[in-house]
Design a protein around this nucleic acid. Structure first.
Lengths: 187, 187
DNA sequence: TTAATATTGGGGCATTTGTCCTTTTAGGAA
DNA sequence: TTCCTAAAAGGACAAATGCCCCAATATTAA
């Protein structure tokens, strides 16, 4: 639910220290700021330094479906950069958010020239695929109750960190259903 | 639904022609053969030459959820190889299936030494992430009817190529619901 | 402070989807 | 051919989920 990638974050920070004229720029956003907007061109790749953001798709019906919550070290914008399309989702800060951003062209350069970086990105993307597969598989073939129970066991405090509306959008259900089940679980 | 990756297939076949002692082995499977088994170690990465396979996760409840159908050029086994875990899904032939297989260690070697190959794999993985995101987003926030209608427009002949049970498992619904909606759509 | 707005919680009902079961049809093996 | 099994189709009812509504509480703005 709240994804992190400490190995990547540490490597980025190491690169920043070693290189003075480095390509990573630290930025600071307050909540509800959109860093990436669905269907718009993107110019940067981002890595979360601290805080939480949500990554979501807006459907034709107007409803949002949240793909992931990004925490420390999470990477985004890389898909758009590597496969050269406009953005297929939006990314918006939930809490105060610090990110390192790097221009597309520098990101692609690093991918080519830095073997270690290349291998970390490959691993990061492999993990995203694995995680998505498992999550969506569970979500699509189990009841809401079982999905929420699963979240409780994986992320005991998700209820306090994330709004009910966002949790609903993450589960692909409506907020009434979420409340109904939460009530049932807590007697 | 039936994913393909012609660029990758062509590149593999080019490598095979240029290199006599190449690392890709052509194999031939009849339907219902499991090439990868969930939770077991894997030793190879595969690329589909022709035919169709399904990639699915089996839940604790015993039900299967189909991630994707793999057609020409689709890659699998790469996640397990890159992120070094046992398999998180099973892959099973649906039709007669020809695949190129390559040993994990050779795959990793190619990734390091062949820039073009590296870049094709990165693009392939980026596309998987994008595709999964869009599919699951739609599937989780729309009715069965709208999901089936979407399949019809994307893959007009899916009904004739794939069994009803597999379609149900792909949509994360039960077969009764599938039949009910199909009937409704066709009056 | 007060007013305005967003978030949370839940009642009541409609709709969708799942479960169980039976029949029909199609295809393969003996 | 006949038998066996798997796939497909659908009736009837139960359970899960969505939708619309309103009230209570918390948060933000003036």
């Amino acid at each position: 639910m709240i994804r992190t990638n400490i190995e990547l974050l540490q490597y980025i920070e190491k690169l920043r220290k070693e290189n003075d004229n480095n390509s990573f720029i630290l930025e600071d956003f307050s909540p509800k700021h959109k860093l990436i907007v669905q269907n718009k061109a993107t110019y940067y790749v981002y890595i979360v330094k601290s805080g939480i953001a949500k990554c979501y798709l807006t459907q034709d019906t107007g409803s949002d479906f949240i793909q992931e919550f990004f925490g420390e070290g999470e990477l985004f914008g890389e898909i758009e950069t590597i496969s050269e399309g406009s953005s297929f989702c939006s990314v918006e800060s939930i809490s105060r958010l610090f990110v390192y951003k790097i221009h597309k062209s520098h990101f692609l350069e690093l991918l080519k020239e830095d073997n270690k970086f290349n291998s970390i990105i490959l691993k990061t993307m492999a993990n995203k695929i694995r995680y998505k597969a498992i999550r969506h598989s569970h979500n699509q073939s189990n009841s809401i109750k079982s999905n929420i129970t699963r979240l409780y066991s994986l992320f005991p405090y998700f209820i306090s960190d994330i709004s009910k509306q966002d949790i609903s959008n993450y589960l692909g259900i409506n907020i009434r259903s979420l409340n109904r089940i939460l009530r049932e679980i807590n007697h």
